[in-house]
Computed example of a mutant assay.
Amino acid sequence: MKLEKEIQQSKFQNEFQKLYLNIIYTASWLNLKNTQRLKPFGVSPQQYNILRILRGQYPNSATVTLLTERMLDKNSNASRLVEKLKQKQLVDRCECPEDRRAVNVKITQKGLDLLAKLDVTDEHIQRDLNQITGEEAALVNAVLDKLRG
């Protein structure tokens, strides 16, 4: 659906303003879809992001600093997210032997099992994006990469 209809605005200052608003609106739309997909599993998109990073590090652990650097949402509080995941027994925290001030985080088997279930639901992502072709997806990816410099 066209942005104009979605936000009920027929005129924009220029195509750049429309693009800016379109990116923000679309990111919000995708985030809502992702939140709805994850809700039955009891995790937020930010927690899911932490789990995916930790699965990539597995069987090694990761520092909270590394998690913060790699997170998609840079405004998230990684320490708080790790604590919530620990309460759900999806991750373990331990003191770093080299630096007692640092904390290492490792995904648990329960966390890995949850991600395996969520991997099956990734087909929902494909359905959310099925209006565009693989070539169009590659073009959008290239343009967004260029936009970020």
Rank of each mutant, 00 (worst) to 15 (best):
M1K: 12
E4I: 12
K5Q: 10
K5S: 11
E6M: 12
E6N: 12
I7P: 01
I7V: 00
Q8M: 13
S10Q: 14
F12V: 00
N14A: 00
N14F: 00
E15A: 05
F16D: 02
Q17T: 00
K18E: 00
K18H: 00
L19T: 03
L21E: 05
L21N: 02
N22F: 06
I23E: 04
I24H: 09
I24R: 09
I24L: 11
Y25S: 10
T26Y: 04
T26D: 01
L30D: 03
N31A: 04
N34L: 15
L38G: 07
P40C: 04
F41I: 03
G42Y: 01
G42E: 00
V43S: 03
S44P: 01
P45N: 01
Q46G: 03
Q47K: 04
Q47P: 02
Y48N: 12
I50Y: 02
I53S: 06
G56H: 01
G56L: 00
Q57T: 05
Q57R: 13
Y58Q: 02
P59W: 02
A62Y: 10
T63S: 08
T65E: 12
L66M: 14
L67C: 05
L67T: 10
T68F: 11
M71S: 09
M71Y: 07
M71V: 09
L72Y: 15
D73Q: 14
D73P: 09
K74L: 06
N75P: 04
N75K: 12
S76W: 04
A78H: 07
S79C: 09
S79Q: 14
R80P: 02
L81V: 04
V82D: 09
E83H: 13
L85N: 09
L85Q: 08
K86G: 10
K86L: 09
K86E: 14
K88N: 08
Q89G: 11
L90G: 08
D92F: 13
C94K: 15
E95L: 10
C96V: 02
P97S: 06
E98V: 15
E98F: 14
D99G: 02
R100E: 10
R100S: 15
R100V: 08
R101C: 05
R101M: 07
R101I: 02
R101A: 07
A102F: 10
A102K: 15
V103T: 10
N104G: 08
K106V: 03
K106L: 03
K106S: 06
I107G: 07
Q109A: 13
Q109C: 05
K110I: 03
K110S: 05
K110Q: 06
K110G: 03
G111N: 03
G111V: 00
G111L: 00
D113S: 11
L114Q: 06
A116C: 06
A116I: 08
A116Y: 09
L118K: 01
L118R: 02
L118N: 03
D119I: 11
D119L: 11
V120T: 10
D122P: 08
D122F: 11
E123M: 12
H124I: 02
I125V: 07
Q126M: 08
R127Y: 05
R127L: 05
Q131N: 13
I132L: 01
I132D: 02
G134I: 03
G134S: 11
E136W: 05
E136T: 07
A137C: 11
A138G: 15
V140C: 13
N141G: 13
A142W: 11
A142C: 07
V143S: 12
L144C: 07
D145K: 14
K146M: 13
